[in-house]
C-alpha cells in the first residue's frame, strides 16, 4: 500500500520537467518568430489591443466577447497587414501604419463594431426565444382546451 504513492511521485517528476521543457521550447520559438517577423508582430500588437482589452474585461467563462471583438478587429487589420507584407516589411513601415489615423480608425472601428455586435445580438436572440416559448405555451393550452372539450374536465385530473 505504501509503495503506490512513491511510484506516483516518481512518475510525476519527469512529467513536470517535460512541461517546463515544452514551455521553454515554445517560448524560444515564439521569440525567434517574433524577431523574424518583428514588423508584423509590432503591427498586430498594437492593432489587436481592443481584442486584448476585451479578453481582459470579459468575465463570462465562455469568453465569447474577445472572439467577437477579435474577429472584426482582425478583419479590420487584414488590409493593412497585407500592405505591410506586400510592401516594405520593416519596423518603420509598421510604425508608419500605426501612426496613420485612417489605419487606426479602420482597425479600431472594426473592433468597435464587433463590440456593438456582441452587445446587441444577445437581447435580440432572447426576444426571439421568448416569443417562441410563448407561442409553444399557447399551442399547448389550446391542445388542453381541445382535450377538455372532447373528454371533459376529468381529463385534467391526475387521479381517477
Amino acid at each position: 500500500m505504501a509503495k503506490k504513492p512513491v511510484a506516483a511521485r516518481k512518475g510525476a517528476k519527469p512529467a513536470k520537467s517535460g512541461g517546463t521543457f515544452t514551455r521553454i521550447l515554445v517560448l524560444s520559438l515564439a521569440v525567434a518568430f517574433g524577431l523574424m517577423f518583428l514588423p508584423t508582430v509590432i503591427f498586430l500588437a498594437f492593432a489587436m489591443l481592443p481584442t486584448v482589452a476585451a479578453y481582459i474585461v470579459d468575465r463570462n467563462p465562455d469568453k465569447y466577447e474577445w472572439i467577437c471583438v477579435g474577429g472584426l478587429n482582425f478583419a479590420g487589420s487584414v488590409p493593412f497587414l497585407l500592405q505591410l507584407w506586400t510592401g516594405r516589411h520593416t519596423v518603420e513601415a509598421a510604425a508608419a501604419q500605426l501612426t496613420d489615423v485612417f489605419t487606426l480608425m479602420a482597425v479600431y472601428g472594426a473592433a468597435g463594431v464587433g463590440w456593438l455586435m456582441f452587445m446587441a445580438l444577445p437581447p435580440v436572440v432572447g426576444v426571439f426565444v421568448q416569443m417562441k416559448a410563448q407561442r409553444r405555451v399557447t399551442t399547448l393550452k389550446a391542445t388542453q382546451q381541445r382535450l377538455i372539450q372532447t373528454w371533459g374536465p376529468e381529463v385534467g385530473k391526475t387521479k381517477g
Binding site: G114, F118, L121, P122, P123, V124, V125
Partner: peptide
C-alpha cells in the same frame, strides 16, 4: 438566450 446571442455574435464576427 444570452449565451446563444453571444455565440452567434462570435460566430458572425469570426
Amino acid at each position: 438566450a444570452q449565451r446563444l446571442g453571444q455565440q452567434s455574435a462570435a460566430v458572425v464576427s469570426v
